[in-house]
């Protein structure tokens, strides 16, 4: 792209930036235009992306280059994909439940292993903590253990939160709320620096107010 292209591009980017920011005032035609362009352009982008990074290298190229089982087994996902398109015809739309069932099966299968490996086992292990004596680390370990246990108990479903469970669940809420507050404050600070970055773009690249 030549420099003219870059100038046009920067102005386009600037217009879109301001149009989106105008949403803060209220919904208006500029925002609507930017929003619709965004949806349309990005939908097109992802269509190309998926064709180029998924379908071509995972289906088309291997089908041309592989031989034997590796080649012909690709008919299975290709068939599932084509069957999915049966939704275009009301008579055959029900067939699309097969590929849908396949994708749901993938989600459910991963759901079991990924959650056990990624969360349950490592998080429980990380919470196996002793008190090492009368010191600050011990106190923190104690608080961590109490926090994890009471938070888990907050999610106990098959008993009313009364009596002992009521007390522990309430302590769990204390931890949950302190945690939410902390996350909130942490993210707030991070987001503000992002906004500053965007305003900086408007003032430097676009308007050249700051050099």
């Amino acid at each position: 792209m030549g420099s003219l292209g870059m100038i046009i591009g920067t102005w386009l980017a600037g217009f879109l930036t301001l149009a989106i920011l105008s949403f803060l005032y209220k919904d208006n035609p500029f925002y609507k235009l930017a929003e619709h362009l965004y949806v349309g352009v990005s939908a097109g982008y992802w269509l190309i992306y998926v064709a180029f990074f998924d379908v071509e290298p995972m289906l088309v190229t291997p089908f041309m280059e592989e031989t034997g089982v590796e080649k012909w087994i690709l008919i299975v996902p290709a068939a599932l994909g084509i069957i999915m398109l049966s939704r275009w015809f009301p008579k055959t739309a029900w067939l699309s439940r097969w590929p849908i069932a396949f994708t749901v099966g993938v989600g459910a299968g991963l759901g079991i292993t990924a959650n056990l490996q990624g969360y349950v086992v490592p998080q429980v292990q990380a919470t196996l903590l002793p008190m090492t004596g009368f010191n600050l680390v011990s106190l923190n370990n104690l608080i961590l253990v109490v926090g994890v246990v009471t938070t888990i108990l907050y999610f106990y479903f098959s008993k009313a939160h009364k009596g002992v469970l009521g007390v522990t669940a309430k302590i769990g809420i204390v931890f949950i709320m302190v945690s939410f507050g902390a996350s909130f404050g942490y993210t707030l600070m991070a987001r503000i620096s992002l906004l500053i970055g965007r305003l900086y773009f408007i003032l430097t690249d676009l308007l050249r107010v700051i050099d």
Partner: peptide, 10 residues
Amino acid sequence: TYDQFGYTAG
């Protein structure tokens, strides 16, 4: 759209 913020805008 599959785009995170494009979807949000929509």
